[in-house]
């Protein structure tokens, strides 16, 4: 999905409450794009996911449960623990009910 002027939006709202348990929102966006989107994109092997797919509370619950791909493929296997935190920070900060809802470019 096209993200019109998306990065400007991010920059515009750069106050970006860095957040969720010490992860880096900016790093998280990069990792999400490079790793998660290889499967979770339109036309790819798994369901398309953007930060808007869930609310902040839902994202937090998702990471707490840690059941990626029904538990068969834990995130810890794909990413380093601090990278998981970065991705969580990005998704939570830009969730559908966040102050800066955000899809992820491309």
């Amino acid at each position: 999905m096209r993200n019109t002027l998306g990065f400007l939006t991010i920059l515009a709202l750069a106050a970006a409450p860095l957040a969720a348990e010490g992860g880096s929102d900016i790093k998280g966006k990069y990792i999400f794009k490079k790793t998660c989107k290889t499967c979770h994109a339109a036309g790819a092997s798994a369901k398309e996911v953007t930060p808007l797919s869930k609310t902040q509370a839902q994202w937090k619950a998702y990471f707490a449960a840690a059941k990626h791909n029904g538990g068969k493929e834990p995130l810890g296997k794909l990413l380093k623990p601090e990278q998981v935190k970065d991705v969580q920070a990005f998704l939570v900060n830009h969730a559908s009910d966040s102050p800066q809802p955000e899809t992820c470019g491309g």
């Binding site: 400007l8 939006t9 920059l11 515009a12 709202l13 750069a14 106050a15 970006a16």
Partner: peptide, 13 residues
């Protein structure tokens, strides 16, 4: 000043 956070005075804030 367009690109800046809320409260800064930038237009997009």
């Amino acid at each position: 000043w367009t690109a800046g956070p809320k409260g800064s005075g930038a237009y997009w804030g």
